[in-house]
Amino acid sequence: MLPVRAYYVGSTIDVRALAKQMPAYPKEFNREGVIIRMSPKKVAELPSIDGDAPIPPEMLSRYLVVFKFGSVVFYNMGHKEREECLKLARSFTSTPLAVPMTDDYRVVVRPTLTDWASLESDHIVLKRMDINNISVISSVLAQTVALEHYEQKVDGMVEIFSKLNKSTELTGDLNISKKRLFSLVAENNNTLTELITKLGLLGRSDTAWQYAQYNIVWEGLRQDFELEDRFQDLDYKLNLIQTQVKFYLEILQNRKSDALEWIIIVLISLEICVSLYDMADKIPPIPW
Rank of each mutant, 00 (worst) to 15 (best):
L2F: 03
V4K: 10
A6S: 14
G10P: 13
T12M: 05
V15A: 03
V15Q: 03
L18I: 04
P23C: 00
P23I: 00
P26R: 04
P40G: 02
K42F: 12
A44G: 08
L46M: 06
L46F: 08
P47R: 06
S48P: 09
S48D: 05
G51F: 07
E58S: 15
E58P: 12
S61G: 07
R62S: 12
F69G: 01
V72S: 08
F74T: 00
M77I: 14
E83D: 13
K87A: 15
A89Q: 04
F92G: 05
V99Q: 08
T102K: 13
R106C: 01
R106I: 00
L113H: 11
S121N: 06
L126M: 08
K127A: 11
L141N: 01
A142M: 05
Q143F: 10
T144P: 12
Y150S: 00
V154N: 01
D155S: 05
I160A: 01
L164V: 01
E169W: 09
E169M: 11
E169C: 07
G172P: 10
L174K: 01
K178H: 07
R180N: 02
S183N: 01
T191H: 03
T191L: 04
I196Y: 05
T197H: 04
T197Y: 06
L199I: 00
G200S: 01
G200E: 02
L201E: 01
L202P: 03
D206E: 12
A208L: 11
Q210S: 13
Q210V: 10
Y211L: 13
W218Q: 11
W218H: 15
G220F: 05
L221N: 07
Q223I: 09
E226P: 02
E226W: 10
E226R: 14
E228P: 03
D229K: 15
D229S: 15
D229V: 14
R230V: 03
F231A: 08
L249P: 08
N254M: 13
K256P: 11
D258A: 15
D258Q: 15
E261G: 09
W262Q: 14
V274R: 06
Y277C: 05
D278W: 15
D278K: 14
P284T: 02
